[in-house]
Amino acid sequence: MAAAAVRPIRVVIAKPGLDGHDRGAKVIARGLRDDGMEVVYTGLHRTPEQIAATAVEEDADVVGVSILSGAHMTLVPRILALLAAEGAHDVGVVVGGTIPGDDAETLRNAGVTAVLTPGASLAEVSAAVRDAAARRRSAIG
């Protein structure tokens, strides 16, 4: 298999809800780009509907959802449901932010591929996104 034929991993970095903490989202967008991925950043204050639509339009392998407002248990399940409704349940969803441990477990059980919390390095974030993309690509062949 020729390496050139492999499309780079496509990631949508998304900021749902009303919180304005975009430092992490922007740092991670740059980190993933510098690691060779194609990155789309939604900008702030997007609805779950807008995020799911962007993921489908961009044919994303992974959606990275950044939330530091505490509203993750409202917003993330809606993004998962909307992706499923669009027929995009294979898209990996990675969540980053201030997520308490028991909430993280609930989110993983609901279909989130990985939950990253403060202190994670760019290498750890990149590995989680690569893993989520690999699962999607093996799932869709």
């Binding site: 809800g17 009303l18 919180d19 204050h45 609805t47 407002s69 505490g70 509203a71 248990m73 409202t74 917003l75």
Partner: peptide, 16 residues
């Protein structure tokens, strides 16, 4: 600048 019943406020009222 949104009231508590605005759709964008869901999950964020009184939280932060």
């Amino acid at each position: 600048g949104y009231d508590p019943d605005h759709p964008l406020s869901a999950g964020e009222v009184g939280r932060e």
